[in-house]
Amino acid sequence: MPSPPPSSGRIELVSVDLVAPDRRALLEGIDLCVRASERLAIVGPNGAGKTSLLRLLFGRFAPSRGRVAIDGRDLASIPLAERGRLVAVVGQSDQPDGRLTLHDYVGLGRIPHLGRCEGARHARVVAEACERVGLAGLGGRRLATLSGGERQRAAIARAVAQEPAVLVLDEPTNHLDPRARADMLALARGLGVTVVAVLHDLALVTPFADRVAVLEAGRLVALGTPEEALSPATVRAVFAMDCFPFTNPSNGRPLLVFDTPDA
């Protein structure tokens, strides 16, 4: 059997609906294209369908209608092992066994590649993944001894070791302090792969995302750059918040500030 072509990480959702077993509509009419190596943030109020959309991207859910594709290939047609080489997932509720060493935990990312390359390369990829996320030299430490920020970095390292074309992040900054949150997203942004992340903190979106998808009640209501998608009108309508666009005086980058409107 010929090897599949190299993946660039381009994602397409075409006319996607997702219906729950109780017949509730979780997502309706989603049309979305994520470009290769793009960083996309998915935002919306609680219950908007953010996690449901994310789970479609790695095949945890199958669409009730429509199509999800990576590089033009229907996700449902891609074998599980190959899918594991294409898409890595870091979830908000990942709770690995604290007795695992960092090296062994990051090595779990190599499972989709077992039998496809020599053991020496597996070990090298694991070591390089740890180094890339700032955990070099900690391979023998048990996860239980790592800080919350280090454990989040370990989860990213495991995903990096998977060598995916697409990285899916479900609220990756939970339980982190503000600096650790910024560092985590800067790390994900710099990996050079397609990254799709659900974010609850709107203040984190601008420095991370190339584009933003805004969901409300299962529908895509805005899509564009952070400044376009998180316009004052959209933020007020979807989040009942005020949004004030500024320019960062130190670097000239756009900056969005959010506040609760007066009653």
Rank of each mutant, 00 (worst) to 15 (best):
E128L: 09
S93C: 00
F239D: 05
V196Y: 04
D31K: 00
D262G: 13
N251F: 04
D31S: 10
L40S: 08
G98W: 05
G29I: 04
L255H: 14
A129N: 07
L18Y: 02
G218R: 00
V126N: 07
L138D: 03
P21H: 03
M184W: 03
L57I: 15
A81N: 12
L26A: 14
E118M: 13
R35A: 13
G72N: 05
I30V: 15
L255I: 00
P96A: 02
R181K: 14
R158W: 11
V196L: 03
T225V: 07
R73Y: 01
L176E: 12
S3I: 10
M1H: 01
A88Y: 05
G134K: 09
M241R: 04
L191T: 04
V212F: 11
S7H: 01
L114W: 14
A127P: 04
A154T: 06
G140D: 15
E118I: 14
G148S: 07
T51H: 01
A182M: 13
A222D: 08
S52F: 10
R60D: 05
G190L: 10
V196F: 01
C33D: 14
I42L: 15
A144W: 00
I70P: 02
D259P: 00
N251L: 07
T145P: 02
V257L: 15
R85I: 11
S77C: 06
L138H: 14
L57W: 10
S147C: 02
A25C: 12
A36D: 01
V257M: 09
L13N: 04
